[in-house]
Structures are given as structure tokens and as C-alpha cells.
Simulated assay, not measured.
Amino acid sequence: MLPWSAEPAGRLDHHVVESDLLRGNPLGDPHERPLVVYVPPGYDDSPGRRSSSVYVLLGYTGHVGMWFNRMPFRQPYPELADAMFAAGDAPPAIVVYVDAWTALGGSQYLDSPATGRYHSYLRDEIVPFVDGRYRTLADRDHRAVTGKSSGGYGAMVTAMLAPDVFGALATHAGDALFEVSHRPRFPALARRLRDMYDGSYDKFLADFRGRLAGTKEGDLELLEMYAYAAAYSDDGIVRLPFDDVGAVVPEVWERWLALDPVVMAGEPRHAEALRSMRAIWVDAGSRDEYHLDFAAVAFRRALEAAGVPGERVHFELFEAGHGGIEYRYPLALAWLSHRLA
């Protein structure tokens, strides 16, 4: 496989969106955000044709420019998606690559007083921006949200929180089942925080921001946990879900669990939202390092308990870990495109 890009059969448009909702956010992050919109082959030649749309969310530390990173012998997702549409393997769809990066590495695509209004930004600004400039089928029954890892989390919660906007979802190794995927990491993080920073996140953040990121052991693990704590905050104060000996802080942990997709799916209004989905794709690698394969199984069971018809759900565990699974995304994209068209 050639190590450089080829001319796409479709077209990638690069935009900058000025967000009123992100202006003045608590982290001081830019309110002007990049947005990449892909239109499939033949879009410009068929002015009367409208297409479904699929919104793609990145995982933790992801920003929209990373979609174009190239690994040896692998193609990035935008090229894989383009090749799929060019081959006629799915009905044409408009693919929207969303940026919701923060100074902490991610937002979980939630409205949080500690990070900013990233759920509302996607729902109320990005979707109307795309519908106003492209020939979309501007209806929830023809619009999906997808993502991997934290992006998969974003896809699950966005579909539950905004079923009037999104009518389908795909989650690849999405964050869920927090008791299994997050809680076991607390003691190791508490120990690292104690041994390297006297138990102080303020000391860690001051050190992290004063040097090149990733140059000390545990940098991203500590920052990631803090980013989640910020995203799940309900009052703007970042509280850790564990104490100095790695034990759970119940009142904080309950807030996290309330935002666990597996738990959310059991609530009547979210269960109703999931039942309204036209299509739900759930997959994960069977040896996921964060045990998100178990999370995928638990979310599928939650869908069943919520009464989502089995024919609307695609579930699969495949041989892989957490990384290097970009080849799975076009499979879900094709499956969703058929059901949204």
C-alpha cells in the first residue's frame, strides 16, 4: 500500500465554524473550530439529489486533523470511506468529521460547566451548519452519529440525549460499563499521583503544562482521568472519583455512573430514545485493553432490556485490542448508510 494519499473520488471540504456556545468556555479553548465535510462521488453532478448524513466523533485526545495521519500499510478513515462509496458498496452519504477537543484532551461530547457546551455545540450548531450548506436529508431518520472510544461514548449519549436530531448510531469500543472499564484503574492512578506529585492534581497539572507533554510516565493516564472528571462535573468543580488510597468517593462516583451509557439506557426516557433508533451498531475488539469488549456486551444487553428490536442492532466482537481498528469504521458506515437512505 502506498504511503501517500491519492485523489479522492468524492470531496473533502474544510471549514472553520464560529461557535457562540463555545465562546468563553471555562478552559479558554478556541470557539472557532475546524470541521471537515465529505461529499460522496457524484454529489456535484446531481444537484437534485439529497443524502443522509453521518457525524463522526473522535476518541480522547483526538482532534479533527488527526483523521489524516498516515500509518505504514494502513489508510486513514476518510480514504477508506471514500473508497467504499466509490466502489458503490453503500448508498451515498455525507460524512461530517467533528472537532470537540479541549485543553484537557477531550470533552466526552457533553455539556459540562467545567469544560464547555460540547453536546449543544454538536446538536445546535454543527448539525444546522451542515444542513444549511449541503443537500442533506435534514431529518433525524436520515442522520447518524458514530465514534470510537470516547467518540463511541459520545455517539451513545448523543443519541440518547438528542433523539430528535439523530436516528442512528455506531459505537466502536465506546466508553461504558464504568465499574469495569474505569474503576479498576483508580488505585494505580492514586499511587502514581502520590509518588510523583504528593497526591496533588494541581502539582501534576502545573508540571504537565510547563513541559513537553508525554515526557513523564503516566502523563496521559493522569490527564485522561482529570478530563473525565471535568466532563462529568455538574457544578464546574473537578472532583476525582477516588481518594488518596484509590477508594471510590461515593457521591462523585454516582455522578459518573449516572452518565454511564449502560446505566443511562435503563432510564425510561433514554430507553425510549434508543427504541426510536433506526439502526444501532455496537462492536469492540475482544482483547480491548480497557475491557470495552465487556462494555459492548453490557450495552447490547441494555438495548435488549430497553426493548430495542434485535433486527435494528448489529453487535460484534472481533479479534483486536483498543487501537488500530479504523478498518471497522467503514463497515458500520456502509451498514448505517443502507438503513438511513
Rank of each mutant, 00 (worst) to 15 (best):
A258G: 14
M71W: 11
A320G: 11
L104E: 08
S181F: 03
R239M: 04
L27G: 12
Y77E: 10
A162C: 02
R211M: 14
L137W: 03
E217S: 14
V17A: 01
F129W: 05
G214L: 07
R328S: 00
W253Y: 07
T158W: 09
A83N: 03
V39H: 07
Y329R: 14
E272W: 06
M156A: 12
A159S: 13
S149Q: 02
R74A: 13
H63Y: 08
W335T: 08
E316H: 13
P184N: 11
V313R: 02
D164E: 15
F166R: 03
Y109Q: 02
P72S: 07
M196C: 13
V245I: 11
S200G: 03
P163G: 04
D293G: 09
L110F: 08
R74G: 02
H314A: 15
T136Y: 02
D244Q: 12
H322F: 09
H182I: 14
M264G: 04
A231G: 09
S51W: 13
S120W: 06
E267L: 08
M196G: 12
A81R: 09
R255K: 15
R278Q: 12
P78G: 01
D283P: 12
D234E: 14
A100G: 03
Y109K: 02
D207A: 14
D13L: 02
P309I: 10
A227Y: 00
R209N: 13
A6T: 12
D195T: 15
G321L: 02
A138V: 08
D288H: 01
Y232L: 13
A306G: 13
P78H: 06
A170N: 08
D13H: 14
H182L: 14
H291K: 09
R74C: 05
F315C: 09
E267A: 11
L57F: 12
F178V: 06
R11H: 14
G174H: 01
L58D: 07
L333N: 05
W101H: 09
Y197G: 01
R70K: 07
P91G: 12
P309C: 12
E7W: 00
E79T: 09
F299S: 03
A159Y: 10
S149Y: 03
V262T: 15
I126M: 04
A176M: 14
